[in-house]
Write a protein that binds this DNA or RNA. Structure first.
Lengths: 343, 343
DNA sequence: GCTGGAATCGAAAACGTTTTCGACAGAGAA
DNA sequence: TTCTCTGTCGAAAACGTTTTCGATTCCAGC
């Protein structure tokens, strides 16, 4: 591996001068600088990031923690989608990403922030942090910039990045209204913070529409199974809603499967709209109309947040990125009236 | 940040002795070693990995390249699933993972191996490398250990890690046979290496079963769209197969949707089995029976491969990890005979 | 008592950078 | 001419480790 000394030796100058020339400092002559740059290129010199970090005290590296939420496992882990946005932003700003996970409990018997400290990363992005995480306090009092994505918690010294859940829910609800629905129910996920926000948006909407009824809300836990049982429950009602806003795609798909089993068809008999736009949501039958989280935008925003804090020293409390409605085939206009004849 | 000097100073010993004591060398007294370890703990000393790397010349870091295959985008990128296995393995063996992506073309105007060189990573795992990648030669002649996952290519100095595609296909085919199917077709993906392997397994199976017919094979490109058009084509046949082995889940789901549109039902009228077990494959209606790639195992195997090569210097050509069949609801026994009545 | 070796520790170099400070030359102003 | 200033460069320290080698002590064996 060719070092800065090699360049210095072949040119007969000092290493300090080479370093300054390569780093664009102004106390080196133009002619010499050109020669240094030339031979650096000829020798295919690459500055050693390790040595550089040792002296500059900044690693130009940030830690990303992919936390396994409630044991869903990888296949259901939505978090990977954010990683792509983070990755792009990091590449643009010439930072490296080191990746950690907490699924291996035996190893990470230490706080995420401790890991950051030992790895000397400049900042951290944590995706999927739960409210009952045992290291929650450490995270919220971290001495380095931290961004939280896809998380239940808020507050503290970390910046909270998420979709604008209320706006997203409004998008879905307005779509339903524009289709002519007047009886729209919800399957909420009240235990999570985003879930509560989405529910509140529904509650306001339903109140405005005059269809707020206690028996139009069911509780789920983000799993398809909870969607299926909610479908059973809805299907048994005397006066079924004509549309359901589910707080997540997984639950929305559970609803579809549950209704399917009971013989009520989507979207002919009932419209269903989800939230998230999980992978392959366009492939379940019928293709799910849902409000898509801008996972790329969220990842990028989180990255910009911590890096900006690193540069400027000023932290942002919260960043909301706008989701967008993607209409597919699980919603339709309600049937003329809740008649008695079936066909 | 507390350094090795701090603990040397408080104990009145030299830094070299502290280093040796902490690293378990045998030329330091037991009593002194104990005191050093104690004060290291008291001072919450963490060895600086940067400084350590500078002198040991090993970074204990490996690069992972997530390549965006054929513009599928993140949502369709199967690659993330492997990352989890890699992550676990890396944690166990105390290596750090730095992540790269190639989706940002403007930045990565340099070979992956060049990036490894500049980042001083000890080894690399590349997922999703295509056969026509412009840096293919560089990868296959890399001076560091490299493992290839989910890739079309093989050979060279890299170790190739993948599912045992032939065995996996056999699993699916035998399942179909055990259900009583005698006319099983295939939707292949001949342009890719794994696709060809899966097709060969089908061909052998079909030959053994006596149902090998040219018009029982259709070509797809791994997209759901190609599955849909294949379904059209199959549905138009005078003598339809009773089951189809698709070379990927995406195509299998496309088949289901295509048949659905033509009024042929899965699995009542035709059975369909996929390959991969993509996220949420259990949620499409009907739940897809498929052969699941052991993504965790593959990731772990790739990691072990490069790390073992780093330790021992000996490289493995190819590692095949066994997939497993997961039967869900898209396959059933064939109907008694191709009768004329519909119900 | 002397020699040999083992055990224990410190001094110092090394890794590849960046950065500070001082040296020196030349140019311009007094 | 002398003084000051600017421009250009080198020497050296520093970052926090690891590792080699030499120094010292201690004890067993003769």
């Amino acid at each position: 591996m060719v070092t800065i000394k090699d360049i210095a030796r072949t040119l007969g100058v000092s290493v300090g001068t080479v370093s300054k020339a390569l780093n664009g400092r102004d106390d080196v002559g133009d002619e010499l600088r050109a020669r240094i740059i030339d031979t650096a290129r000829e020798l295919r010199y690459e500055p050693d990031p390790i040595a550089r970090r040792l002296v500059t005290k900044r690693s130009r590296t940030l830690g990303v923690f992919m936390l396994d939420r409630q044991g869903f496992g990888v296949r259901r882990n939505f978090g990977w989608l954010f990683l792509d946005g983070i990755l792009h932003g990091a590449a643009e700003r010439e930072y490296d990403l080191v990746l950690f996970s907490n699924t291996d409990d035996t190893r990470y018997e230490r706080s995420y922030i401790d890991i950051c400290r030992s790895r000397r990363v400049d900042a951290a992005i944590i995706v999927g942090l739960r409210g009952d995480d045992r290291y929650l306090d450490d995270v919220l009092n971290a001495p380095i910039p931290v961004a939280l994505i896809d998380t239940e918690v808020s507050g503290g010294s970390a910046t909270f990045v998420s979709s604008d859940n209320r706006a997203g829910a409004a998008l879905a609800l307005e779509h339903l209204a524009s289709l002519g629905h007047e009886k729209v129910a919800t399957l909420r996920a009240p235990f999570s913070y985003p879930g509560r926000l989405r529910y509140e948006a529904w509650a306001e909407f339903a109140a405005a529409l005059g269809c707020f009824r206690d028996d139009y809300v069911r509780d789920g836990d983000f799993t398809p199974e909870s969607g299926m049982s909610a479908a059973e429950s809805f299907a048994a009602m005397r006066e079924m809603p004509t549309a359901i806003f589910a707080a997540s795609d997984l639950m929305a798909i559970g609803l579809i499967r549950g209704f399917e089993k009971r013989g009520v068809r989507v979207p002919e008999d009932i419209s269903i709209v989800g939230f998230d736009d999980i992978p392959n949501a366009d492939l379940v039958g019928p293709a799910l109309t849902t409000v898509a989280q801008d996972t790329l935008g969220i990842g990028k925003a989180a990255l910009d947040a911590v890096l900006d804090e690193l540069d400027s020293g000023s932290r942002r409390e919260e960043i909301l990125v706008e989701p967008r409605l993607v209409v597919r085939q699980s919603c339709a206009a309600p049937r003329a009236a809740a008649g008695s004849v079936k066909g």
